[in-house]
């Protein structure tokens, strides 16, 4: 029965202390917007990083003058490795064709050649999960030991970059998430503290009438939750405005930004996250107060 009173009291306070509350909502909205934009950036980097292993390949160069059977034997032994998902044999002629295509403007360089100096090779695609430098390096060493293989080339830097990028994205997300969410909790904690002290005499009267701690604290928890919720909605609207701003305006100048992916779930997640943080901040605030 006390709950309708708690809601009424919370919303009366929200209206009465509109400047403190508006400022808190705006601060929470800005913080959530910062989290969202950074998460959006990291999310897109993560997607891009996920795409890199797909494009990552290793090339095993074969010795010259191998027989068809020897080549087939090499392909079979590579095929038996679980880490390899796709193999493509490139003959000397195919290699020359690819080179000619790549050197369209400098094709004259190849005209003087009497014989094809390129060696046949096998293009190897690996499982995405194992594209980590240490793993790829070990695999390359193993492949090199297969008889008939002359050398193995792989983009060591790409593998390293993918791995580092993924780890950096995860670490950065964690640091930003922890610091900004702590900031939001602190803002709501401080606001609820201020609101509590501004209503101190009112609370003393209610306590003298026999109100329990729960009765006194509940309106503040509702108020904190509402500040977080409203901040979440504002933050979501801000993120949406930012996304459409980029899609329709900035991408004309910077086309790469036009490819940004915006997970629509953010619009629902932000008010929920805001409410949870708001309730957390206010519970900490009222829990520490002496009644």
């Amino acid at each position: 029965m006390a709950l309708p009173y708690s809601f009424k009291s919370a919303f009366q306070s929200l209206c009465r202390e509109k400047w403190i509350n508006a400022l808190s909502i705006f601060t929470v909205a800005s913080s959530l917007l910062i989290i969202t934009l950074i998460s959006l950036f990291l999310y897109n980097i993560d997607i891009a990083a996920k795409g890199l292993p797909e494009r990552f390949s290793m090339v095993a160069y074969l010795k010259d003058n191998l027989t068809k059977e020897q080549t087939q034997e090499i392909i079979s032994s590579l095929d038996r490795k679980n880490e390899i998902v796709h193999l493509k044999y490139i003959s000397k002629d195919e290699a020359m064709q690819e080179l000619k295509q790549a050197l369209t403007e400098s094709i004259a360089l190849l005209e003087g050649l009497e014989e094809n100096p390129l060696t046949p090779s096998i293009e190897i695609r690996l499982q995405e999960e194992i594209v980590k430098s240490a793993y790829v390096k070990r695999l390359a060493e193993e492949i090199k030991k297969i008889p008939g293989i002359d050398n193995v080339y792989y983009g060591e830097e790409i593998a390293e970059t993918v791995y580092l990028l993924k780890r950096s994205v995860q670490n950065m997300s964690m640091i930003i998430f922890v610091s900004v969410t702590s900031g939001i909790v602190f803002v709501i904690y401080s606001s609820v503290n201020i609101l509590f002290y501004r209503r101190r005499s009112e609370i003393e009267i209610i306590a003298l009438l026999g109100a329990t701690g729960g009765f006194i604290r509940t309106p503040f928890i509702i108020e904190g939750g509402f500040i977080g919720f409203a901040g979440g909605i504002l933050g979501a609207l801000g993120a949406l405005a930012f996304y459409f701003g980029i899609t329709y305006n900035i991408s004309a100048i910077m086309p790469m930004l036009g490819a940004l992916i915006f997970p629509i779930e953010i619009l629902f997640l932000l008010p929920v996250a805001g409410s949870i943080l708001g309730i957390t901040g206010s519970i900490i605030a009222v829990g520490r107060l002496r009644l």
Partner: peptide
């Protein structure tokens, strides 16, 4: 010790609301 932003009715009612009365 009346609460200024509550009406007379609500000030009086508060003594019963803390008791959880309907």
């Amino acid at each position: 010790k009346l609460i200024n932003n509550l009406s007379v009715f609500d000030n009086v009612a508060l003594a019963l609301r803390v008791k959880g009365r309907s």
